[in-house]
């Protein structure tokens, strides 16, 4: 690659990558649950992405590509290895959670402060936390999530369903002041 081509590639990478900065940081912080580690993850992600930008296929989803790099970087970190190792054996289709109690949800949500929902998200196991955040916060399609996490679309759907149920249950437990139910 000649200098002018390299500059142009850096330019377009910059245009594509910088608008994702806050999104990537938010996701990194949710995964690592630690500011310093999240900062390292974001820096490393940008460095790796720039290095591998020539392998990025134009026309494919750049956002999913960046999030995949960040997520893989996290998985290779000490926190990531620890967080995922514990939950690797979780079946995706096993309805292990208790059936939801029929408390009116509107009342539940009215009572739940943003902080309680945040705490409950933070307590979800990484595979469920990440799929929930990519869907609800990043508003990615199932296909984009599947591409980011390198899992089949069916697994995205089952994990998402489980994550949502687990979150509702966790919020309910917190509001009732009870002990947390089984973690997803």
């Amino acid at each position: 690659m000649c200098v002018s081509e390299e500059r142009s590639a850096t330019g377009s990478f910059e245009q594509l990558a910088l608008p994702l900065f806050s999104h990537l940081y938010n996701f990194a912080h949710w995964l690592a649950q630690n500011r310093e580690e999240a900062e390292d993850l974001v820096q490393e992600t940008y460095a790796k992405a720039l290095k591998g930008f020539s392998s990025f296929e134009a026309g494919t989803n750049f956002k999913a590509w960046m999030f995949r790099i960040l997520r893989n970087t996290f998985l290779n970190s000490r926190t990531g290895l620890k967080g995922v190792a514990i939950h690797l054996d979780l079946p995706d289709d096993d309805p292990a959670l208790p059936a939801e109690q029929r408390t009116p949800e509107t009342i539940l949500l009215d009572r739940a402060s943003e902080q309680i929902v945040q705490e409950a998200i933070g307590e979800l196991a990484v595979p469920y936390r990440e799929v929930l955040l990519l869907c609800e916060v990043e508003e990615m399609s199932y296909q984009e999530i599947a591409s980011t996490l390198a899992i089949p679309v069916g697994t995205v759907m089952s994990r998402l369903s489980r994550a949502r149920r687990a979150l509702r249950e966790a919020v309910r437990q917190k509001l009732n002041g009870g002990s947390p139910g089984p973690k997803a």
């Binding site: 850096t10 910059e14 990558a17 910088l18 900065f21 806050s22 940081y25 938010n26 912080h29 949710w30 500011r35 999240a38 900062e39 974001v42 820096q43 940008y46 460095a47 720039l50 949500l109 739940a112 943003e114 929902v117 945040q118 998200i121 929930l132 955040l133 609800e136 916060v137 508003e139 979150l167």
Partner: peptide, 25 residues
């Protein structure tokens, strides 16, 4: 809606953005 709002919890420090811009761009 509640998850969307609660999920946007963390903002990067300005210094991190500057570091990345300096290193990468």
């Amino acid at each position: 809606r509640a998850i969307h709002s609660a999920g946007q919890r963390y903002s990067p420090d300005r210094s991190l953005r500057e570091r990345v811009e300096k290193d990468i761009f």
